[in-house]
Each structure stands twice: as C-alpha cells, then as structure tokens.
C-alpha cells in the first residue's frame, strides 16, 4: 500500500514529466486559459537564456536582474497577445529586447535610433557558409571583449546571433526588421568588432 505523501510525490513527478514533454506554445496556451502556476515552467525554461542575453546586451549596466524580472512580468501581462500557432521564443525575446532598450534609453548613455537607414536599402542575403560557421567561435570570443564599445544596433544583432544562436529569421522577428537588414547589420557589426579588437590589441 502506498502512503498519500508518496502518491503526491509521484503525481508531482508525473506532472513535471508531462510539462517537459509539452512545447512552449502549448504551455503558453494553458497560461492563457488561466493556469498561472504553469507559467513557472516557461520562466524556468527561459530565465537562463534571458539572463545571458541581458548580461551580454546590457553588459555595462547595473540593473540587469531587475530588467530580466520585468521581462517575465511583462510576458505574463501580455500573454494573451501571443498567438499560439507562432513560436514562443521570438515572442519572449522581443519583449526582452524592448525592455532592455528601455533600460538603455532611460540611462541615456547610448543613442537608440527609432529608424536606421540600413532598413531602407537592405539587399538579399546569402546563407552562411561552412567556413563562416567555423569562424563563429573565434568571433564570439572577440565580441565578448568588445561588447561595451559597439553601437546598440550592432550589439543587439551580434549578441542574438553569436550568444543566443538565433538564425536570421528569428533575429528579424525579434527586432522586427527585414531579414536582409539583419544580414547587413551582422556584416557591419563584425567589421566594427574587428576594428575595435585590433585597436585593443595595439594598446
């Protein structure tokens, strides 16, 4: 005979296993239907990712933890705007991106432009080659050294690409810019990153 305590534990484990089997979108749909507790599963899945994104994007800022907390609270408040047939990841990253930009704006240490000319004439981009992927690890290390010296518009794209390992499509969804603009900013960002790195090396 099993004790009620033991049965509760087993039910809890079963629930946890079922949760891990469910997709983010399915869990989000449950939160939309009023299951607040289950939102904790989404927080659990994304907190380390969003924290890492904050640590890189808001490299030189103090209030990173508060900003990350704000991201999840905003996600909960706005969960009804999430369309469950879309992917959850770009949606929450979009909220994170807007929240972090607000932190940057509030502190007025860096310029954040509403509109950039590279959104105007972005051309078609080609997919990343194998060689480029090999270079990625080395570039990530360089980027880590130059984060605080890069403009916001390049930093956001580079961080999402190198540290969050998002593809062009996802980055375009998160930043709400054309996919081609992502390619342009990545190319320009890399160039600037290398120039900054060279100047650091010479010093």
């Amino acid at each position: 005979m099993t004790s009620p305590e033991c049965s509760n534990n087993r039910n809890g484990n079963l629930l946890a296993r079922r949760m891990t089997e469910q997709t983010d979108e399915e869990i989000a749909a449950k939160v939309q239907r009023g299951d607040t507790d289950i939102f904790g599963v989404l927080v659990g899945r994304y907190e380390s990712k969003i924290m890492r994104y904050a640590n890189k994007f808001l490299y030189a800022y103090q209030d990173r933890e508060d900003a990350v907390q704000e991201v999840f609270i905003k996600a909960y408040q706005n969960i009804q705007s999430f369309r469950t047939h879309d992917r959850f990841s770009p949606w929450i990253y979009r909220i994170a991106h807007n929240t972090f930009l607000n932190v940057v704006r509030k502190q007025s240490r860096e310029k954040v432009h509403l509109f950039s000319t590279d959104q105007l004439f972005a051309l078609q981009i080609k997919d990343q080659s194998v060689e480029e992927r090999h270079e990625q690890k080395q570039e990530r290390e360089i980027l880590d050294l130059c984060l605080d010296k890069l403009d916001v518009k390049y930093r956001e794209v580079l961080v999402l690409y190198y540290f969050e390992e998002k593809d062009y499509e996802e980055i375009a969804d998160i930043l709400q810019i054309p996919k081609a603009t992502v390619g342009v900013r990545l190319a320009r960002g890399r160039k600037r990153m290398k120039t900054i790195y060279q100047s650091i090396q010479t010093v």
Binding site: E47, V68, N78, Q80
Partner: peptide
C-alpha cells in the same frame, strides 16, 4: 529570480491583460 517572478505574479499586483 524565478521565485521572485512567480511571487510577484501571485501577489495580485500583476494582472494579465485580457
């Protein structure tokens, strides 16, 4: 952080927009 977020949400200070 996770605990803080859930605590804030459950404390009724945060409401989900309809």
């Amino acid at each position: 952080l996770s605990a803080k977020v859930l605590e804030t949400i459950k404390s009724d200070n945060v409401t989900m927009h309809s």
